[in-house]
């Protein structure tokens, strides 16, 4: 499996390792406990399971959005627990590709600027011609190059989500995390988006962890992990 290069240029593994993780989500209402979870570099893993089992919480922990209360979360060779909030944000911005169901595009930026958003938000905030060319190339492979000049409001739901996928992969990240990216799409569009995402991460050698409820797309992944069996998502009622 080919490893991708990070935005900083250093070769990274893209592997994920979680051990003895405990994350609290919300004001003591949800707790996730994971004894062990590993994804090899370049592997495509689907996370399935009933709502509330902790799939999305795990993805947020892997993205560094949630700080682990206990345990080890290692992504792309970086131990996230050792980073402070600023470090985790920078890691997320520069090393990860993220696609969320409700991850809105910025409505006042056209398609190309949305794709290049992570580049603009990164330290320095410079976008080179090479970045633009890479973004156009990727958009061409995703079939949305002709939409790059349009605002999100002028796009359909499927086109918007393909644009979000393009944004996630534009930095050629080592790891891509997707949380139900097709949840709001119809079947045809959902299939197209998953196909494009999976094909593109395979081409880039990017590790993919995707939360999904759609059993029809599971055969596109190297491995399927059932969250109900692998983690413990515990919802606690607040004490009055």
């Amino acid at each position: 499996m080919t490893n991708s290069s990070s935005p900083t240029g250093s070769r990274t593994s893209g592997a994920i390792a979680v051990r003895d993780l405990r994350c609290d989500y919300g004001p003591n209402t949800f707790r996730l406990e994971v004894d062990g979870f590993e994804v090899a570099a370049g592997e495509r893993v689907a996370l399935v399971g009933p709502s509330g089992c902790g799939k999305s919480t795990l993805v947020q922990a892997l993205a560094g959005i949630l700080a682990p209360r206990r345990g080890v979360v290692s992504v792309d060779g970086v131990e996230l627990g050792a980073l402070d909030e600023r470090g985790r944000r920078r890691f997320r911005l520069t090393r990860l590709g993220l696609v969320f169901q409700d991850l809105e595009l910025i409505d006042y930026l056209d398609g190309l600027d949305n794709v290049l958003l992570s580049r603009r938000l990164a330290p320095g905030g410079r976008v080179s011609n090479a970045d633009r060319a890479r973004a156009r190339d990727l958009a061409g492979r995703l079939g949305i190059e002709h939409l790059l000049g349009r605002l999100p409001a002028e796009l359909s739901g499927g086109e918007r989500q393909r644009l979000a996928v393009c944004r996630a992969l534009a930095t050629e990240p080592s790891v891509c995390l997707a949380d139900e990216p097709t949840g709001a799409l119809d079947r045809v569009n959902a299939d197209a988006v998953v196909d494009l995402l999976v094909d593109e991460v395979a081409r880039l050698g990017t590790t993919l962890v995707m939360v999904t409820h759609d059993e029809r797309v599971l055969d596109r992944f190297d491995r399927v992990v059932d969250g109900a069996a692998a983690f413990r998502g515990i919802t606690e009622e607040p004490v009055r």
């Binding site: 993205a63 909030e85 600023r86 985790r88 944000r89 969320f100 809105e104 938000l121």
Partner: peptide, 16 residues
């Protein structure tokens, strides 16, 4: 709000 949440989740600085 949605835009700022997006920026936050992408990893933009808290000072954004």
């Amino acid at each position: 709000t949605a835009e700022l949440r997006t920026l936050d989740r992408l990893g933009s600085s808290a000072r954004t």
